[in-house]
Design a protein around this nucleic acid. Structure first.
Lengths: 216, 216
DNA sequence: CGCCTATTTGAAAACCGTCAAAGTATGTGG
DNA sequence: CCACATACTTTGACGGTTTTCAAATAGGCG
């Protein structure tokens, strides 16, 4: 989801932004904010990788998204005067640009093109969330996993840097189930994998799987 | 989700909008657009009730949302140059205001306050979608159903005009399972129900259920 | 009254989560 | 450089929740 929201900014605008922005750094596995925290800041990822997640009632983690450079973070909270709806943690060494809520709104009133960029990003995320909703509500684990991998590969290429644990948390299943399915796929030559990494070897077969059980 | 996006409009703006807008009417159970249709129009619901849904690979319907007067429709498509990501059907007699994609963007460039309204609406929907994702990925059917009912009651009051079928499609389960759980709740005095309608009778107990299994 | 849709109940089976235990990379400190 | 700790991966067995299939009942509308 490389969405360089502020790519369109010329130097004047950057200058203007710098007045209301502040840099924040965080090392690997540090929490940027918790679900429920008051939400004064809106962030743009400058460098690194951030995981956004929620917890279930019995303590399992559900990963909503991974964000990288150019992605925005904390928008839902800032535009609604509500606490952050999810937690964010840096996965690797990360550099963020933080913008105060109030300043951001003023800035956007003056720069409608940036607003449109944000609308576009939010639309895209909403679309993705809805697609995942459909999957979680109606598909089997095997299909959910295959769709997940395919969706991830659109953005990240065929080699996906995630552990089974993370894949499970994204697909809404358990590590054991994920391992069982991936093992099967490895035998069938659909994927390859090393520790902490899965590589899609046969995208065609994976697509077939994602479309449902062998109807017939 | 009564979000009167265009409530802030004064007469001048309304006049301006009327140049790029067109009214569209549709009677009950008519399709407004299908998932995958090219998306030239953005809609605001003026009157009636609209159901937005997606189909699973084995033909089950997943209801993403019901929209009423003031709600916007088709935004994800219009701001992204992609086909509609879900289908929309009128549930009752409905009146819509349709706005052409191109015209809308121009309009928003001139009225940044409306853009902010839209951002706020999208944020709120994204928040809801993510919360549902969490539920679907990590909670039992009983908890999903109770959360669903509670969420719906925030917007619609304690009497919810939905069939078991629709509730199932929203909670991502089957009609039979929903019936079994609701029957249980009825016995326990948590809800009442008549054909096509469920009334929450004991919100406190329902909230307890939504928070997970009786820990301990 | 008759038809269509919504609701209900039962029984069997499938899918997947849970628990337990062991094997295997990776990195750290001695 | 080795030993150890840690995190990731793997496998097996069991059980529970939920789906599936089948059939019956009940409510509402023409």
């Amino acid at each position: 989801m490389q969405t360089p929201i502020f790519a369109a900014l010329d130097n004047d605008k950057l200058q203007e932004l710098s007045l209301i922005a502040r840099e924040r750094r965080s090392s690997a596995n540090e929490t940027i904010f918790w679900e429920g925290d008051p939400s004064d800041w809106f962030y743009v990822v400058a460098e690194g990788k951030v995981k956004v997640s929620k917890l279930t009632s019995n303590g399992r983690e559900i990963i909503l998204a991974f964000f990288g450079p150019g992605d925005i973070l904390g928008e839902a909270a800032v535009f609604e005067n509500k606490p952050y709806p999810a937690s964010a943690q840096s996965v690797s060494e990360t550099r963020l640009v933080g913008i105060k809520k109030s300043g951001l709104i003023e800035f956007l009133m003056k720069h409608p093109d940036i607003s449109l960029e944000i609308i576009s990003t939010l639309s895209s995320r909403l679309r993705e969330a809805q697609s995942r909703l459909r999957d979680l509500a109606g598909e089997r684990v095997e299909q959910r996993l295959s769709r997940m991998l395919l969706r991830l590969s659109e953005r990240l290429g065929d080699t996906l840097p995630f552990t089974r644990q993370e894949l499970s948390d994204m697909a809404g299943t358990t590590t054991e189930t994920t391992i069982r399915i991936l093992s099967q796929w490895k035998e069938r030559g659909i994927i390859q994998s090393v520790r902490g990494e899965v590589t899609i070897a046969d995208k065609v077969k994976l697509k077939l799987l994602s479309e449902g059980p062998p109807q017939v």
